[in-house]
Amino acid sequence: MSMAPAQKISTPARRRIDLQVVGPIVALIALVLIGMALNSNFLSYANITNVLARSSFIGIIAVGMTFVITAGGLDLSVGSMAAFVAGLMILVMNLLTDRLGVTLPVIFAGVALALISGLVAGLINGLLITRVGIEAFIVTLGTMGIYRSLITWLADGGTLSLGFEMRELYRPVYYGGIAGISWPILAFVAVAIIGEIVMRHTAFGRHCAAIGSNERVARYSSIAVLRVRLATYVLLGVLVGFAVVMYVPRLGSASASTGLLWELEAIAAVIIGGTLLKGGFGRIWGTVVGVLILSLIGNILNLTDFVSPYLNGAIQGAVIILAVVLQRKGAADR
């Protein structure tokens, strides 16, 4: 091919509409329209705040999950990890309340503990995967079982609850906010924006995509593959801890059913958002859209008696499968 015609086609931008980019957004807009049509309360401040605040936990975790999956990994343990970290945090805060009373330092200590134990849990997953060389699926399947069983044991099969006065002090972290926007929503937005920047505009994000795309090429390009991969799990662990910090003041308790199936919801959100499950390409804003789609489905079913809310899982499942079908199509067209 000669140079002349080659240059000619390089100037116009892609005319084709990219289904992978537009798909999730169109689905989200459609859901909002359906919600508006079915229930006038759908767009009310209370409902929107409620939906967004509740989805912020999974959202914060899903941002971390996007990095893990983009780098070709997977983490099934995050739901159990969240429950375990929440239980640990409550136990320690209750112990500290006995000594220090109902004071802010107890909350700071609890927050620090949640973040650190999330980090350590992520580090354990990451080290087993990168240094010992066990597959991510197996490692995190194992730790998922371990953390779930540990929280059940800590709570002795029941529920761990934060002391009543402490709960009152900590409560505003979930229910309060600024300018009418509650803290968990602000936290989710902040994590998402930083995540998007890190993914798209830093060497770390680029390296994650490179490793997920072809690990050998990454290694030959002098990228510290194991270290980057380890970092994705640690980052996810810290974000799980952060999500717990937002979650505990909501109910003030943790039990064996805390965070149940969060891992699958987070992975589903990542995939719906257009990140490739096999790695190599990820986008945070897509994950955010995925999280919103999943929680809006649940919310709409709850607000209307059109379809039983018990069918929530079925509809979410169908959406996940549909998203992957669209991804395939997009990949084939390219």
Binding site: R206, A210, S213, V217, I223
Partner: peptide, 18 residues
């Protein structure tokens, strides 16, 4: 193709990767 270039990425990403 196996160790040199990321085939599913663009020229820019490949060039500056190392």
């Amino acid at each position: 193709k196996g160790a040199g270039l990321l085939l599913d990425k663009g020229l820019r990403e490949n060039l500056t990767l190392p």
